[in-house]
């Protein structure tokens, strides 16, 4: 377990000297800030704003679709390309510790970015009488964190498969996109359609957690998908030993 922490904290610190991480953070804040400010701006010109703390959450979820592959793409692919993965694997570290550590580092970094987005609902709360519905806000953010953990785990898994970070980026993006839109197949009523619908990342998020309902099946779904991606990732790293 100590190894996980060492790898995670090293990765976490690594982000703060990575230009990609700064670009991701800056663009997230710029886009969200713009959207938030436009809403406020229209409010002073007479139109009503919804007293809803989730004002930037919808756009944020969409940005994360692109941001998470960018954040995870180099985690293992880079090590592989530079040949440092062999060093890492020969060190007294288990394969799963490498994967979980890398994922945890990325998760920590993204949590820092997400934490600062509380500014927007905080401002809105100050402007609202008697304040926004904070229960919904907590549930929606909890869902966002779960969604983020799943997306990052998938990103780490894909990064473990490739030598080239760009390839990892696009493949992870494609997989997340498929998990994104598979929900629209779920608009039918057949069994296949229901399965497709229940696989969708965004539908799982928006249907309950986003509305203020913490639903055990949804939480389990995100946790399971995270575990599954991390287990698959460790198997792939392990396969480097015997392939």
């Amino acid at each position: 377990m100590r190894n996980v922490w060492i790898i995670a904290s090293r990765e976490f610190r690594q982000y703060f000297i990575s230009p990609v991480a700064y670009a991701v953070a800056a663009s997230i804040y710029l886009i969200l800030g713009g959207i938030f400010f436009i809403n406020i701006y229209f409010a002073i010109r007479g139109s009503q704003i919804d007293p809803d703390g989730r004002i930037v959450l919808g756009p944020l979820v969409t940005i994360l679709l692109f941001a998470t592959p960018a954040v995870t793409m180099r985690l293992l692919a880079e090590e592989h390309r530079m040949g440092t993965l062999e060093l890492l694997l020969t060190a007294p570290v288990r394969d799963w510790e490498v994967i979980v550590g890398k994922w945890l580092g990325a998760f920590g970094f993204m949590l820092v970015i997400v934490a600062f987005t509380w500014v927007y609902p905080y401002i809105l709360n100050r402007m609202t009488d008697p304040g926004i519905d904070q229960g919904i806000l907590v549930s929606a953010y909890l869902g966002l964190v779960l969604l983020l953990s799943t997306m990052l785990a998938i990103g780490v898994l894909i990064s473990a498969m490739f030598k080239n970070p760009m390839a990892a980026f696009f493949v992870a993006l494609a997989i997340l996109l498929v998990l994104w839109i598979v929900g629209s197949l779920g608009s039918g009523a057949g069994v296949g359609s229901q399965i497709a619908g229940s696989l969708s990342l965004v539908d799982r998020y928006y249907n309950n957690l986003y509305r203020g309902i913490i639903s055990l099946p949804d939480v389990l779904y995100f946790v399971s998908l995270t575990i599954l991606a991390l287990v698959f990732g460790s198997q792939i790293v392990e396969s480097r030993r015997w392939r």
Partner: peptide, 19 residues
């Protein structure tokens, strides 16, 4: 719940912070 429209100063402050 009712959102009261912000004053010009508050709007400026929000602009400064968020943008």
């Amino acid at each position: 719940r009712f959102v009261s429209p912000p004053s010009t100063q508050t709007t400026g402050l929000i602009f400064l912070l968020t943008i």
